[in-house]
């Protein structure tokens, strides 16, 4: 592999790596949002005194 080929490949890999990193960060964010939804649902149940219901699909 020539020097030019290495640099060109590196440029493309950097872009792909950053996009992948962004997706990983976004996945963590979705996990946090999911936990927040659970927490708020629990809070709402406690306040209303309603029994726990399962979310369809879980």
């Amino acid at each position: 592999m020539t020097s030019a080929e290495k640099y060109a490949t590196a440029a493309y890999l950097v872009v792909l790596a950053v996009v992948l990193l962004y997706l990983v960060i976004y996945a963590f964010k979705l996990q946090r949002l999911s936990r927040d939804v659970e927490e708020i649902a629990e809070l709402a149940r406690t306040r209303s005194g309603a029994p726990e219901t399962r979310i369809p699909g879980e």
Binding site: S3, Y7, A8, A10, A11, V14, V15, V18
Partner: peptide
């Protein structure tokens, strides 16, 4: 801003070569 970082990095790689 994310694309800006990528522009600077890929531009630097091109400048180096």
């Amino acid at each position: 801003t994310i694309f800006g970082i990528l522009t600077l990095v890929t531009g630097s790689i091109w400048a180096r070569t």
